[in-house]
Every structure is written in structure tokens, then in C-alpha cells.
Simulated scan of single mutants.
Amino acid sequence: MRAVKNLLVLYTGGTIGMLETAEGLAPAGGFEARMRDHFAQLTDAPQVPWTLHELNPLLDSANMQQHNWLAMRDAIVAAVDDGHDGVLILHGTDSLAYSAAALSFLLLGLPIPVLLTGSMLPAGAPDSDAWPNLCGALRQFEQGLQDGVQLFFHGQLLGGTRASKLRSEAFDAFKALPRHRQGERAAEVPSALTYRQPRTRVNLALMPVYPGLQAAHLAGLLDSGVQGLLLECYGSGTGPSDDLALLEVLRAARQRGVLLVAISQCPEGAVEFDTYAAGSRLRSAGLISGGGMTREAALGKMFALLGAGLDVAAAEHWFALDLCGERA
């Protein structure tokens, strides 16, 4: 770890820089001037040198999409090429954990640290957490951070593939879920999966298992051109395994090259297919285990693997290995 001397602040929008409009809070430009004005009033302002770049368009993170992840990835790679030795991303909280996870996989092998932060209240609002989160993140760069992607919020430093938003209003909105992680670490990451590899958008879908889920529901989703399905199963990876029509829908999807991944709906625990016959049957239909991965990490990993052009067999191979702390 080393202190950062040339930081890029990548402002994507989000609550931290929002201003009031007739329709409510909305993203606003000009945040660099507001940052510099605020720091000029502090006697203990962070001393790390920084420049700010605004992504266009600025977003309420509820509108975050895959192409925005790719734009962030491109901006970060350009920052490395321009000599920056760290990147701070200012981001809205709704999809902050999703972006942190996706970028963790899009930036494998990145030789600089990347940190994401945001706030629950806008900068300038009474008792806002915006300046404490921003100053705290900048001080992390002063102290030194490990390379790769992390999230800083309310005084906590969290791994990019571990964080989830658990609270919609409290300042300590993000936590690392106590999910069981046990997986083999990849010996090395192939060049096709490193940060230099461009990616394309991927048609991904997410569906929870629930009482009343029908084969027709699943078939309708999969028939929409889905390339990867994340199925949120019960407990240790079970589902309606007595429904032969549903199992056949899954089996047919896998045979035509759809990546099928199972994670647990539970905030604690992991997928262990062999615990119950109901889990074993899902695995036999083509599902692979996401272990103790979070929803955010599993979606981000599917996006990075399939977006790199891997076929389903290769994607399954790398999905089963730990690439950046998501499984181990």
C-alpha cells in the first residue's frame, strides 16, 4: 500500500452532489467548485492532490445501467494511462454496491486503488453525511490503500464484492453480509479478463424462487434472449425441484448456452447443492453454485465474464473460482 499523490475524482452524480428542483432532488454539475470551497473552510482538510472529472450524463444512481459501468471503466483505464495513481468515484447509493461489484471484476489487475463513496443526504443539507464520507475517503488515499476496488461509507472500508445496501435511510447504510465464503482462488487471471479487456453489454436476468413460480414464468424470461440468469434460491440452494417442467426449462436454457447461477436468498449462509435433494436436482438441470456470493457480486461477475465474450463453459469455469474476494 502507498499514499496516493495524483488522485482522480470521478463524479458520476448521486445524492452527494444533488440540488433541489421543482421535481425533487436531482443530479447537478459544478461539484468541483463546491468541494474546493468546502475544503478551503477546513483547518484539517485532506491534503491528497486531486482533479475532478464529471461523467456525462450525471446520474441518479437509480438510473445506472451497464453502459454507465463501461463508461466508468473506460475513464479509470484512461486515468491510469494519464498517470493517476488512485481514483475516487462519487456515486449514488441506490446502485453503489452493484457498481462496486461490477467494477471489481471489470478492473481485475488494475495497478491502482479505486474507492467508491456517496452519501445519504446532499452536501450542504443540514447534518449531511456527504462531507464526512468524502473527507474520510480522501484520507484513505492519504494513508494508503491496496490496489483494486473498495467502498468507503460511514467510516467503514468494505471490499467491492462484499458490500450490500441494507438500509434506505440510516447513515450506516452499507454492510458486508456475513455470508459463508469458501472457494479456490484463481492462480492467475487470464488477459481476457483483465482491466485492459474491453467489454460489451450483456442481457442478464434475475429471478427469485418463490411459492407459485411457474415454468412458464421462467420460460418467458429466458426466451427474451437472456444470456445469463441469476436464480435466487431458498436457503442452501433449493427450489421447486418436483416441477419437472421448470427443470426442463432450465435444462434447455443451459443446453443453448445460457449461464445459470444460483445464490441464496438468505442474508447469511451459502448455496450447498448437496444438502438437499431439491438442490441436487437444480444442479442437475444446469445451475452452478454462486456459493456465498451476494446478488451484487454475482451479477457483476456474470456481466464481466460474458461481456468479455466467454462461452458458457469458460464462464462457468471462472465463475467457480475466486477472482477478487467474492468467493473466499
Score class of each variant (00 low, 15 high):
residue 19 L to Y: 08
residue 101 A to L: 05
residue 300 G to W: 11
residue 154 H to I: 00
residue 320 A to F: 04
residue 298 A to V: 02
residue 12 T to Q: 07
residue 242 D to A: 14
residue 174 F to M: 01
residue 191 S to E: 13
residue 274 D to H: 15
residue 287 L to Y: 10
residue 189 V to N: 05
residue 22 A to D: 15
residue 19 L to Q: 11
residue 192 A to I: 05
residue 295 R to H: 12
residue 100 A to S: 12
residue 113 P to K: 11
residue 39 F to T: 00
residue 57 P to K: 14
residue 129 D to G: 01
residue 204 L to F: 09
residue 193 L to W: 06
residue 231 L to N: 05
residue 57 P to A: 09
residue 97 A to G: 06
residue 23 E to P: 09
residue 9 V to H: 13
residue 237 G to E: 12
residue 256 R to D: 01
residue 80 V to D: 06
residue 169 E to W: 05
residue 109 G to Y: 09
residue 55 L to Y: 07
residue 131 W to F: 13
residue 214 Q to A: 14
residue 65 Q to H: 15
residue 268 E to V: 04
residue 174 F to N: 00
residue 252 A to Y: 03
residue 276 Y to N: 09
residue 321 L to A: 04
residue 216 A to S: 15
residue 204 L to C: 09
residue 115 L to A: 02
residue 287 L to A: 12
residue 300 G to Y: 11
residue 13 G to Q: 05
residue 31 F to M: 07
residue 122 P to T: 04
residue 118 G to H: 00
residue 171 F to M: 10
residue 216 A to I: 13
residue 28 A to M: 08
residue 261 V to D: 00
residue 301 K to L: 04
residue 326 E to I: 09
residue 1 M to Q: 10
residue 40 A to H: 09
residue 249 V to A: 02
residue 196 R to G: 12
residue 302 M to T: 00
residue 162 R to F: 00
residue 250 L to Y: 07
residue 260 L to K: 01
residue 149 V to R: 06
residue 9 V to K: 14
residue 103 L to N: 09
residue 294 T to Q: 08
residue 194 T to Y: 01
residue 17 G to Y: 00
residue 162 R to I: 03
residue 110 L to N: 11
residue 197 Q to F: 12
residue 244 L to V: 14
residue 119 S to L: 04
residue 235 G to L: 05
residue 130 A to E: 06
residue 1 M to V: 08
residue 308 A to E: 01
residue 129 D to Y: 02
residue 159 G to M: 10
residue 96 L to D: 03
residue 42 L to G: 01
residue 212 G to S: 03
residue 66 Q to K: 10
residue 115 L to Y: 07
residue 253 A to C: 01
residue 44 D to F: 04
residue 183 G to N: 06
residue 127 D to K: 12
residue 53 H to R: 14
residue 156 Q to D: 13
residue 187 A to Q: 13
residue 225 G to M: 06
residue 316 E to W: 05
residue 54 E to S: 15
residue 22 A to W: 10
residue 232 E to H: 02
residue 281 R to Y: 13
residue 268 E to N: 02
residue 98 Y to P: 03
residue 247 L to N: 15
residue 37 D to N: 08
residue 131 W to R: 13
residue 96 L to S: 07
residue 267 P to Y: 02
residue 19 L to M: 10
residue 227 Q to A: 13
residue 34 R to D: 06
residue 103 L to P: 14
residue 38 H to V: 02
residue 51 T to P: 03
residue 50 W to F: 10
residue 296 E to D: 09
residue 33 A to W: 00
residue 279 G to W: 07
residue 73 R to Q: 15
residue 182 Q to V: 06
residue 197 Q to G: 12
residue 207 M to P: 01
residue 260 L to I: 01
residue 216 A to F: 07
residue 91 H to E: 02
residue 114 V to W: 10
